Amino acid sequence: MATGTLLATAACAGGDDDTSAESETAAATVAERPLAARTTTPSPSASKSAGATPSPTATLSETGARNALITAADIEDDWVQVKNPQSWSDKLLVGQVDAAQFVTGKTDAADCQRLVDALYDETLLGTPSGASALNGFEEGDSRLLYQVAAYQKATLDKSMDWLEKLPETCDQFTLTGGDSGDRTVQVVETSLPKEGDARQGLTVTVKGTSNGDPVTLTLDVAVVRVGNDAITITNGGLDGADEDTTKAAVEQGTKRLKEVLAGRTPTPTPSMLD
């Protein structure tokens, strides 16, 4: 019995040594493993929360809207800021859409008329529900109208949807009446820098006559939505539309609007307005 007890005791002691050795080996392995390999992987929900970028939630004020406006320095070249762009219009755009072209869809004619009427207007995206600011620039025969405004979400969503469909519903139509006779209007989609929450670019070309001579008015239209606010750009003229200027206005304007909505004042840029 004494011998059996000693053997059993020795076996138990040997088992404890093996377990201890295995624990020490595992600890050494973990210690030798690189820190990156030992880092605990965060849960999917934690990773998503950490990487999420919240959308701006600040309400756009009148001061903020003015601060978010671009200046001539933002679009470079020889643009000069003007004092009263609200008075702008273009006689090539004055007239009525020929509804006879839209036999199967009278609403399409209304959509095209809305576009023509709003190209030099402050209501391209509908009537702003809050703060709104506007400025304009000239370079030779070209003009650039720039607006920052707050909208009701439903109004803004409908307007963005309307703009998206225009290259299909209003790809080509005729304007009648006014002083320029019949004019052919074409609407095509254009690409914009990937700024904001949503964006839509168009090029509108109007061919008609002025003082008996054939003329072509070309306008870039760019809209960028940031939350429930948006920037709107109309750029061009009888000399055509400068795509680089439109893109610069989109990039710099979106940046300034986001700065304002984040509670910051954008870095001032020199203005050429005396």
Rank of each mutant, 00 (worst) to 15 (best):
V187H: 07
V148W: 04
N135A: 04
G14F: 01
E259N: 08
G201I: 00
T176A: 10
M272L: 03
E76A: 09
T232V: 15
T155Q: 10
V260C: 09
G126P: 01
T123L: 10
T5L: 12
A154W: 09
V80L: 09
D157S: 05
L166M: 08
I231T: 14
L217R: 00
V221T: 09
T269W: 02
D17L: 14
F173V: 14
C12S: 02
L273H: 03
A241V: 08
G4T: 11
D161R: 07
G237E: 02
I231L: 14
Q86F: 09
S47T: 15
Q86G: 06
D117S: 10
Q101R: 01
P266G: 12
V221C: 08
F102I: 08
V188T: 15
G105R: 05
P85S: 05
V187A: 04
G240Q: 07
G105L: 01
S49G: 13
A100M: 12
D179Q: 08
T25N: 07
R114T: 07
C170A: 09
D17K: 11
T59P: 02
R114Q: 04
S89E: 11
S210P: 10
D179R: 13
E24P: 13
S61H: 00
E32N: 14
T209K: 07
V116G: 10
G240L: 15
G14T: 03
